[in-house]
């Protein structure tokens, strides 16, 4: 249960850890857009190079980063297969009613590479940015939209709380699951309907405890006079440094290379 690594943060003091969260968020978004702009395999040298550089600088073990792909491997393979079979074009091989086409294969490979790079890139963001600074960054980036009625602070606070409680809920799930297994519950076998039924002894206690926690948290926040974002100041102001500017320059060069590759 606790093997899930998405959204996990690994504390550290690397260059990547020290970057302003806004820098990391903006670059991750730009990197995602870049991934979908590239239209040939050579172009992918640029984002791949970028991600390798960032990983090396972050000090995160490559094995751990790749482990994050494991729960999503099914989706990646499915995407690859769907694209390979569904795209019309020059037929390479016939499998019953299905045609594998040359265009399909390359389209499938594109999508798979995009997905993998996308997942690694976003994991790198969350692995090197604590949930608090991540939501701080989002709040500041969204604050210009307050004028058109976007509740930036409230959104950020909701995200902070959600992120904060993911590990707690996983821990709780693990505990309740074990407690019911000690009473002979079986969460692993049976057909789909039975399995869903067997989840009741897990889900009911889990929801009860989640509501209780929400109640307690609301009370604790109220006791400390929390009343939304107005006039709130920060203990740690976000500050861009030379490091952030250098990072932007490097990324712009890499993205430029990628975009140029479209015209090769």
């Amino acid at each position: 249960m606790r093997e899930i690594t998405i959204g996990q943060y690994i504390p550290g003091d690397s260059i990547v850890h020290r970057l302003d969260p806004r820098t990391k968020i903006i670059i991750t978004l730009a990197y995602m857009i870049l991934l979908f702009m590239l239209n040939n395999f050579y172009g992918y040298i640029f984002p791949v190079g970028f991600i390798i550089l960032a990983t090396l600088l972050s000090g995160i073990s490559v094995r751990y980063l790749l482990k994050g792909l494991k729960p999503l491997i099914f989706i990646i393979i499915l995407t690859f297969l769907l694209n390979s079979f569904m795209t019309k074009g020059r037929v390479i091989y016939q499998l019953g009613p299905l045609d594998i086409t040359y265009e399909g294969l390359s389209q499938g490979a594109f999508m798979a590479i995009r997905l993998i790079l996308l997942i690694i890139g976003t994991s790198l963001l969350t692995l090197t940015t604590s949930p608090i600074s991540l939501t701080d960054g989002i709040e500041v980036l969204l604050s210009p939209f307050k004028k058109i009625g976007m509740p930036a602070h409230e959104l950020a606070m909701m995200m902070t709380i959600a992120l904060r409680f993911i590990p707690t809920l996983l821990e709780e799930t693990d505990k309740i699951m074990k407690a019911q297994m000690a009473r002979g519950a079986d969460f692993e076998s049976g057909n789909l309907i039975n399995r869903a039924k067997n989840l009741v002894p897990l889900l009911v206690p889990l929801f009860i405890s989640a509501f209780r926690r929400a109640d307690d948290l609301a009370m604790a926040m109220e006791a400390r006079c929390y009343h939304g974002g107005e006039n709130r100041t920060r203990m740690k102001e976000l500050k861009m440094t030379f490091l952030d500017i250098a990072t932007f320059i490097v990324f712009i060069l890499i993205a430029g290379g990628g975009i140029a590759s479209r015209f090769v």
């Binding site: 505990k175 309740i176 074990k178 407690a179 019911q180 000690a182 002979g184 079986d186 002894p201 206690p205």
Partner: peptide, 20 residues
């Protein structure tokens, strides 16, 4: 393991949290 779990009864900490 199921029969082991029947013979070795384990009451968890805060067992009331598992009532459903």
């Amino acid at each position: 393991l199921k029969s082991i779990r029947q013979k070795v009864g384990l009451v968890f900490q805060y067992p009331e949290h598992q009532l459903f």
